[in-house]
């Protein structure tokens, strides 16, 4: 059974008299443990697809099954629960809470999950250790570099041990070296068995993935598996 199963998903926006077709009848399956890159020109519908997969948005038509559960019939609260348990988001602009330190930012999803203070602290610390920031837990976002901020965001995404980690242009605001660090981190997560979906403009970044989806005008233009990249270990050595 596929982890993600989209069937004839469309997403339309009504702008006055004009209807914008951000996605047109997209069907797609992604299995557990896959590492998928989504590429395509600006405005092609990549973010729209991510938002639908992440249950932030609901399709205009079509059905979406996550873990065998149909999400089309869920209400707002149930979707919030799914996002909390099943999905980890990483954004281009990090989206950390500015006044909270790294530890608290990572704790946040666990607070919404209703975990006790001790459980939260242990898990958040563990996630921050995984991204190599165990010594920065009391720093606020403005006391961290861009790459460190994004690593805090990654820690926040994986702290709940979600089924999927979704990243929308995670390296978009980083220089190429820092971007490579984040991609190496994703590589490690993928090896540990996490399911990853990464939206990107850069071929370099996409090459880390095992599968590349290319989107054009709201349609999947191509869907190909990549050979295992040999340079991965070299990248890991950078860390």
């Amino acid at each position: 059974m596929s982890l993600i199963r989209l069937q004839n998903i469309s997403r339309r926006y009504q702008m006055g008299a004009e209807t914008i077709h951000a996605l047109r009848e997209v069907s797609l399956e992604i299995d557990r443990g896959e590492y998928v890159a989504i590429m395509g020109p600006s405005g092609s519908g990549k973010s729209t697809l991510m938002n639908l997969v992440g249950c932030l948005d609901t399709p205009s038509s079509g059905s979406y099954e996550l873990n065998g559960v149909n999400t089309s019939e869920m209400d707002d609260n149930q979707l919030a629960g799914i996002r909390n348990r099943e999905i980890g988001f990483v954004f281009q602009t990090f989206n950390l809470l500015p006044r909270a330190n790294a530890l608290r930012n990572v704790e946040l999803p666990l607070i919404y999950a209703g975990l006790s203070n001790e459980e939260r602290k242990t898990m958040a610390l563990d996630a921050l250790t995984q991204v190599g920031l165990a010594d920065r837990i009391h720093h606020k976002p403005n006391e961290l570099s861009g790459g460190q901020r994004q690593r805090v965001a990654v820690a926040r995404a994986l702290v709940t041990n979600p089924s999927i980690i979704l990243a929308d242009e995670p390296t978009g605001n980083l220089d190429s070296r820092t971007g490579e660090e984040i991609m190496a981190l994703f590589e490690t997560l993928s090896r540990k068995g996490n399911t990853l979906i990464v939206v990107t403009h850069e071929e370099e970044v996409a090459r880390h993935a095992r599968r590349i989806l290319r989107i054009r005008d709201g349609l999947i233009a191509s869907d190909e598996k990549t050979e295992k990249k040999s340079g991965v270990d070299a990248v890991l050595a950078v860390l």
Binding site: G54, L56, D76, N77, A80, G81, R83, N84, R85, F89, N95, L96, L97, L108, P109, Y112, A113, R156
Partner: peptide
């Protein structure tokens, strides 16, 4: 607004 978006994305319910 951003903060609200982030909170919702990581699982905050309307009530919260």
């Amino acid at each position: 607004t951003r903060e609200i978006g982030v909170r919702k994305a990581i699982g905050a319910k309307r009530r919260t």
